[in-house]
Design a protein around this nucleic acid. Structure first.
Lengths: 332, 332
DNA sequence: CTGTTAGCGCTTTCAA
DNA sequence: TTGAAAGCGCTAACAG
C-alpha cells in the first residue's frame, strides 16, 4: 500500500505538504496540489484508515450486537441499519450473540477498546431471562449505546421500541369488537422475552375487559410447535380467532387450521406478526401486526449518529414506533 | 480510556515495562508484573485496538459483502461466518450491497484501505448481470478474497459454491425415475443469477434426456408472482411436479396448488430450495434441496483464515458443497 | 530486569 | 507556500 511518505519521497517534498495537498488545504499552491494528486491517483494511494482513526480517535464504525440473523425481523433491522450507516459514511461491525449471554458480554468487551464509536444493541434472550446487565452498564459510561426492540429498562440509554402492548391490545379489540370473536387464543414462542410479555399483557387486558377467557399457548423452546398447535386446536374447537405474537407460529396455525378443515376467515381469524415474506409464504395471505423493521433500523441509527456528533446535554429518549395492523386474507 | 502512559506514570515506571508486564514478557520481574496488572484491572485498562492494528498492520477484521440480509440463505451464511470468525477472535465488518453494483464497488473501495485483512463476498445481482468485475480485480491483488454462492468465474480467488447444476439435475431425475412424473415445471425468481442458470441447466438436462418437455416459469422481478403461478398452473393442469430453485416460489406454488384443489403429493409433487424455516411455514411440509448454509459459512471463513495465516499457500481452490435433498411431505 | 528510542501512517501546529 | 516536529497508543529492538 502506498503511503504519504512514499509519495513525498517520489516528489521530493515533505510528508506534511503531501497530506495537506491531498486534503485540499488552501495553504498549498495549485501547482503542487495537482502534482501530488496526479501521482496519488496514479499509484492508487488511499489514506490508511487505521492511522487516521488513531490520530482522530474516532473510528466511524458502529458496533451492532444482535441475537440472531435467522430472525427475519432482526435481519431486516440490521439491513436498514447498514443502509443508513452507509449513507453517513459509517461502517458496521456486526456481532451476533446467538441469544447467548456469554457471547454478548464478550462482544461488548471486545469492541469497547476503541474499536467503535458506539453500540446498537438488541439484547440476547438469555440476557433478558437472567437479567444480567453489568456489561452494558460499564460500556454505557464511556460509549453511546442505543437499544432497539429488546431493551433493558434498567440501562439508561436511548431506546427504540415497538408499541408491543398497544398493538396487541388493539388487535384483540378489533377481533372482539369488529369481528365479534369470543374465543381468542394467543400463541407465542417468545413468552420469556420482555416484548413477549408486553404483547401478552396487551391481549390479556383486552380479553379481560370484555369478560372473555384468557387462553395463551406457550411454545418457546418446544420441539414440534406445529403438532402442539394442531393438538390444541383440535381439543379446543371453539377457538374462533388466533393472535400470534411472533413471526412464525401464526403461519403454522394457519396451516394447522387448514389441516383441520377450518374455514378461514369465516370460522376463524388469524393475525400474526409481520415480516417481509410473510404474505408470500402463507395462504390465505396472513393478516399481521407489522413492525416496520426498516423504520426502526433507520431511526435507531439516526439517534446513534446524532449522539456521536455530540449534542452533549441531549437527554435520553425512548421512541415508540407504532406498528400497523395489515388486514389481508386471514381476517374477515 | 486508560492508556499505558497513564499506568506508567502512576507506577513511576516506563511505558515499555508496563507493556511487557501486561503481555507476560519473561523479562519482567514477578513483582512488577503483579503490580502492573493489579493497577490495570483496577483502572479497567484495555489496550487500544486501533493502536495495535497500526503497529502490527493487521486488523483482525474481515470485510463481508453480501447482497441482502432479507434472503434467508444469505442471512444464515452470514450468521455462520460471524460465529466462525468469533471463534478465531476476528471481527466482521458487514457491508450490504443491496443487489446494487455501485454500492458494492463503494464498499470494496472503502474497506480496502487497511480496514480489513480480507474479503468474503457474495456478489450483487446487478454485478452479475452487467458482469462488472474491476473492483474485485483490483482488490484481489493486494488482499485475500473468498467468494461464496454467487461467484465470478473470471476472478481468480478461492470460492465456495453449491452444486447447483448437479443437485437440480438429481432432483429432476428423482421426480422422473422414482415418481414417474412426466410434466415437470421449473419455477424461479433468480434466473438472471449464475446460480439460477446452473440450476435451470441441471433441470433441462434431466428433462431432455428423458424426452420430456422443458417448462420454465420465470418470475424474477415480477409484482405478483403468486397469481402468475396460479394462472400458469390453472392453464396447465397436466403439470405433475414442480421444482422451485429459490427459497420462496416453492412455498407459493404449494399454496396455489391447494387453492386449485390439487392433492399433494398424490397428484403433484413440489420440491423447493431450503432454508431453516421452510418446513415450519409450509403445509404439507415442503421437500427441499437444502443448501447447508451453515457449512458454507464455516468453510468459507476457514479458508479465509488459512489464507491470511499462510501467505505462501498460493493455489486457489473452488470447493463445492454438495446439497442434500430432504424429502418431506410434498413429495411421494 | 528496566528504560530509551524508534516507528507504524497520519494530521496539525508552529516555524521558516 | 512549504517543512519540521510532535503525537495518537502501542510494540520491540537495543542499551543500560
Amino acid at each position: 500500500m502506498t503511503t504519504l511518505k512514499e509519495l513525498a519521497a517520489l516528489l521530493n517534498i515533505s510528508v506534511s505538504t503531501v497530506s495537506k495537498a491531498l486534503n485540499d488545504s488552501h495553504e498549498i499552491s495549485e501547482k503542487t496540489r495537482v502534482r501530488v494528486k496526479e501521482l496519488a491517483t496514479k499509484l492508487n494511494y488511499k489514506p490508511n484508515r487505521i492511522a487516521q482513526q488513531l490520530k482522530s480517535s474516532k473510528t466511524k464504525v458502529i458496533g451492532v450486537i444482535v441475537p440472531s440473523l435467522m430472525n427475519p425481523f432482526i435481519a431486516e433491522v440490521v439491513h436498514a441499519i447498514e443502509m443508513t450507516l452507509d449513507k453517513n459514511n459509517y461502517d458496521m461491525s456486526l456481532c451476533i450473540s446467538n441469544e447467548n449471554l456469554k457471547k454478548e458480554q464478550r462482544s461488548v468487551e471486545l469492541l469497547s477498546n476503541g474499536s467503535v464509536d458506539g453500540f446498537i444493541v438488541a439484547v440476547a434472550r438469555e440476557t433478558q431471562i437472567k437479567n444480567k446487565i453489568e456489561h452494558f452498564e460499564n460500556v454505557n459510561k464511556s460509549t453511546p449505546v442505543v437499544m432497539f426492540d429488546r431493551v433493558i429498562n434498567e440501562i439508561e440509554c436511548d431506546k427504540v421500541v415497538v408499541d408491543d402492548f398497544q398493538s396487541v391490545y388493539e388487535t384483540s379489540r378489533y377481533l372482539i369488537d369488529k369481528e365479534k370473536r369470543e374465543h381468542i387464543l394467543l400463541i407465542s414462542n417468545i413468552e420469556e422475552l420482555s416484548v413477549g410479555k408486553y404483547r401478552i399483557d396487551g391481549y390479556t387486558k383486552a380479553v379481560k375487559e370484555s369478560n372473555l377467557k384468557v387462553s395463551v399457548l406457550k411454545l418457546g423452546g418446544i420441539v414440534n410447535p406445529d403438532v402442539k398447535i394442531y393438538d390444541y386446536l383440535k381439543l379446543n374447537p371453539k377457538i374462533d380467532a388466533i393472535i400470534s405474537i411472533d413471526h412464525i407460529t401464526g403461519i403454522m396455525a394457519l396451516n394447522m387450521l387448514k389441516k383441520l378443515g377450518k374455514e378461514i376467515p369465516t370460522e376463524i381469524s388469524v393475525i400474526g406478526f409481520g415480516y417481509s415474506d410473510a404474505q408470500f409464504v402463507s395462504n390465505p395471505k396472513i393478516s399481521v401486526i407489522n413492525q416496520k423493521a426498516r423504520e426502526i433500523g433507520e431511526i435507531t441509527t439516526k439517534i446513534m449518529l446524532e449522539k456521536i456528533k455530540g449534542f452533549k446535554d441531549r437527554d435520553l429518549k425512548t421512541i415508540v414506533i407504532p406498528s400497523e395492523i395489515i388486514l389481508r386474507e386471514s381476517t374477515k
